[in-house]
Nucleic acid binder design. Structure first.
Lengths: 234, 234
DNA sequence: ACCTGAACACCGTTCAAGT
DNA sequence: ACCTGAACACCGTTCAAGT
C-alpha cells in the first residue's frame, strides 16, 4: 500500500483514454528482446494459430512486439527462419524405435512419426529437400540415430543412406499428398476416364491419403527386407 | 507491291531513330493477342531460359509484349497458370508402357519418366499435390492410362489408386530430393554423428539422388508385386 | 550489439477507360 | 471481349540513426 517502488505508473497504464499500443525508446535495449529460441517459438505459435500464409516477417515481428527490421539482427532471411522451423519440427519426430526394435519395425514407426509431423508443416517440405542438415542439430541427431540403427541391423553404411533418402522422399511426398482435397481424383465425365471414375466411386468416403501411405510404406519395407544383406528375403 | 492493304506501316517500323519499344492502340485488338496456349508456351520458355524465380506475371507479360494486367483476361491467378504448366509437363510423361508391358515393368518406366519430368519443374511439385486433376486433360488421360493398365494387370480398382498415389508420392519426393545440393548430408564434426560421417565419405562423388531413387523404386515395386492378388509374391 | 523508423524494389491483382 | 495505364495492398530486406 504505502510502498515507494515504481509500480504506480506501469507501462500498461495509459495517461489518458487514447490507445497507446507500444512505447519503447529508440536505442538498443539493455537486455536483448529477441533470440533464435524466441523467434522460433513465436513463428510456431503464429503458424499454429493462423497457418503458413500468415507467417510474414511483419506479422512475426508484430507477435514479438518488435519492428520487422529487428528480426534481421538475428536471422539472415526468411529462408533461414524456415530452416530453424524445420529443425524444430524434426525435434518432434520419434526415431527412438531404432534403439529397441528390429530395423524394419523401427523404419515403419519412424516413417509414420515423420509424416505426421510434416502433414501440419507441408510448406516446409520444399525447404527440407534442399537444405543441408549441418546447421540443424536436431536434424543431424535424427539422421544419425536412423543410420546407426540401420547399420546395427546389418545394412552397409552407404546403402543405409539410400534407404533413408528413399523413405524420406516417400514420406515427404505423402505429407504433401495428405494436404490435398479428398476429391482430387474426381473426374467430371466418366466416358473419358472410365477406370478412374469407377475407382473414384469405390474410394469415396475413405481416407485415401492414409490408405495410400500405408500401402506404400508396407511395400517399401517389404522390398527393403528382400534386399537386406542378411535378410530372409530374396 | 502496289496493293492497298494496311502493310505499308507495320508495327515494327519506327518513324525515326528514337527507340520505341512498342506501340499499340489502347483498345481491344481485332484479333486476341493472348490465349492459354500462348501464355503457357511463353511461361515454359521463360522458365527454361531463366528458371522459376524469373516467372513473374510482369516478366511473363513482357515476354508476350503485353501489359501485366492483360494476362488476367485469360488466367484467373498465378496459381492457375501453374496448373496449366502442370498439365503441360504431365503431357511429356511417358505412360505408354502400360499398353504393352506387364504392370510392374510399366510402373517402373512410368515412375522414371515422371521423375525426370519434375526434376526440371520441382517448384510445381507443391502445386500438384493439392490440385484436383479435373481441369487438366492431359493429367486425367495419364492417370486413366495408368489405372486402366494396373486393372488390366489384375489389380482391383480401389487398390490400384493406392498404388498410383503411393508411387506418385515417392516420385515427387524424389524429384525434390534430386534438386538438393550433393553435400546435403555432410556433417562438420564427426564425433556427433559418426555413422553419418562414415556414410558421407563412402558416398562422396556418387549420384546419391539417383541411387536412392532407384533403390526406393525397386523396393516399392518388389513390395507391390508381393501384395498383388494374382502375383507370385507372398 | 540490437533496437526503431523510413525507406526500397519488388510482387500479384484490380479496375476504369478505351476500342 | 480484350487490351492499356494507373493504381493498391502487400512482401522481404536494407540502412542510417539512436543507445
Amino acid at each position: 500500500m504505502s510502498c515507494v517502488t515504481n509500480d504506480e505508473v506501469p507501462t500498461q497504464v495509459a495517461t489518458d483514454s487514447a490507445p497507446r499500443p507500444r512505447a519503447r525508446r529508440r536505442g538498443r535495449p539493455s537486455v536483448p528482446l529477441l533470440s533464435q529460441k524466441r523467434i522460433t517459438r513465436a513463428a510456431v505459435e503464429l503458424i499454429g494459430a493462423r497457418g503458413y500464409p500468415a507467417l510474414t516477417m511483419a506479422a512475426l515481428a508484430r507477435e514479438l512486439r518488435v519492428a520487422p527490421s529487428a528480426l534481421y539482427n538475428h536471422v539472415a532471411s526468411k529462408r533461414d527462419l524456415l530452416r530453424w522451423l524445420q529443425d524444430h519440427v524434426n525435434r518432434g519426430i520419434d526415431a527412438s524405435a531404432f534403439d529397441t526394435e528390429p530395423w524394419d519395425v523401427a523404419l515403419e514407426r519412424w516413417a509414420r512419426s515423420y509424416r505426421d509431423a510434416y502433414v501440419r508443416h507441408a510448406p516446409l517440405v520444399p525447404v527440407i529437400a534442399v537444405t543441408p542438415i549441418a546447421g540443424s542439430p536436431h536434424t543431424v541427431a535424427m539422421y544419425e540415430g536412423v543410420v546407426a540403427g540401420l547399420c546395427a541391423g546389418g545394412w552397409p553404411e552407404a546403402e543405409a543412406v539410400d534407404v533413408v533418402v528413399a523413405l524420406e522422399s516417400f514420406v515427404l511426398g505423402s505429407a504433401m499428398d495428405a494436404t490435398a482435397p479428398a476429391d482430387i481424383f474426381d473426374v467430371p465425365d466418366d466416358a473419358a476416364a472410365p477406370a478412374l471414375a469407377r475407382a473414384g466411386l469405390l474410394r469415396a468416403g475413405r481416407d485415401n491419403a492414409d490408405a495410400a501411405f500405408e500401402a506404400g510404406l508396407a511395400a517399401l519395407v517389404t522390398g527393403f527386407r528382400a534386399r537386406h544383406p542378411g535378410g530372409a528375403g530374396g
